[in-house]
């Protein structure tokens, strides 16, 4: 079953209070992402990308505004439902890979399926399937420390896929990787998106993400600067190397 919008974000704000000081990390962001889209969130360091991901992924509560995943308002969920949502509806990928160090690749990928109460035989088969899909069919019994950065990120991608989530949230998935490995990871995500139809939202300040995205959302200082689709991106880049000409704010929402 797929809904019109896998992710709908309505005017979210997130303010951090640190004593007297306030950091307005998000200042009214609205985004709608359709099933099967591949969207990149671009913005300089400190622009609020991670904060946005945390709010959208149910890891943190926005100060104001609503987030819907598959048309469920996640602010209305209790702790059990939220755990279910994180487990079944969202696949997270981080810059730091975040694998459980003491578990093998297989066991890491199996984890969300265990939490989802999938039967053992199903898990065995599914974990093998997704690990093979990311090209690690022969590394299943290696622990994270025995894998390269790129391989660890592939394990993380396999883990994010194992429960067939509605959306994958990847916060700077290539941040810790060299150029070539980063490109491989991006290509992998893009292929998963086009072949399996998995919706992908990824954050980056890495321009090589641009080519593969259906849409690019540029944010700065907690606000959307502009939204570009794959069709007008090349033009914009040619004009001003991605600065601020030809803005198409709120483009095709």
């Amino acid at each position: 079953m797929s809904y019109q919008y896998t992710l709908k974000v309505e005017d979210i704000y997130r303010t951090y209070f640190m004593g007297e000081e306030r950091v307005r990390a998000l200042q009214g962001i609205s985004v709608q992402i359709k099933h099967g889209e591949y969207v990149s969130l671009m913005g300089p360091s400190g622009s609020g990308k991670t904060t946005f991901f945390n709010c959208v992924g149910g890891l943190d509560q926005p100060t104001k505004g609503r987030v819907y995943i598959d048309e469920v308002d996640i602010a209305k969920l209790d702790a059990y439902e939220l755990a279910w949502l994180r487990c079944r509806k969202i696949g997270y990928i981080f810059q730091t890979f975040n694998l459980i160090p003491n578990l093998t690749a297989f066991e890491n990928v199996e984890m969300p399926a265990i939490f989802a109460k999938k039967p053992r035989e199903f898990r065995q088969q599914k974990v093998k399937e997704v690990l093979t899909l990311v090209g690690l069919g022969d590394r299943m019994n290696h622990r994270p420390a025995q894998l390269s950065g790129g391989q660890q990120q592939r394990v993380a991608i396999a883990r994010s896929l194992v429960n067939d989530p509605a959306i994958i949230l990847a916060d700077e998935p290539t941040g810790n990787l060299d150029l070539e490995t980063g490109l491989e990871i991006i290509t992998l995500l893009r292929n998963l998106n086009s072949e399996k139809g998995t919706t992908v939202l990824t954050a980056t300040h890495d321009l090589k993400m641009i080519d593969v995205s259906d849409r690019i959302i540029w944010i700065d200082d907690g606000k959307i600067k502009r939204i570009e689709t794959i069709h007008n991106i090349k033009v914009t880049l040619a004009v001003d190397d991605g600065a601020c000409e030809d803005p198409k704010i709120g483009g095709d929402q």
């Binding site: 469920v72 209305k76 969920l77 209790d78 059990y80 439902e81 755990a83 279910w84 949502l85 487990c87 160090p101 003491n102 578990l103 265990i114 939490f115 989802a116 109460k117 622990r143």
Partner: peptide, 30 residues
Amino acid sequence: MTKLNRLGLPKTQYSTNTALRHAWKNIRQR
């Protein structure tokens, strides 16, 4: 809990067996 029923979502689970197995692994490797 009532909301849980309304949405029909099952709880996520971490069986004692699995938790014991993971705990033992963590102990052995650290």
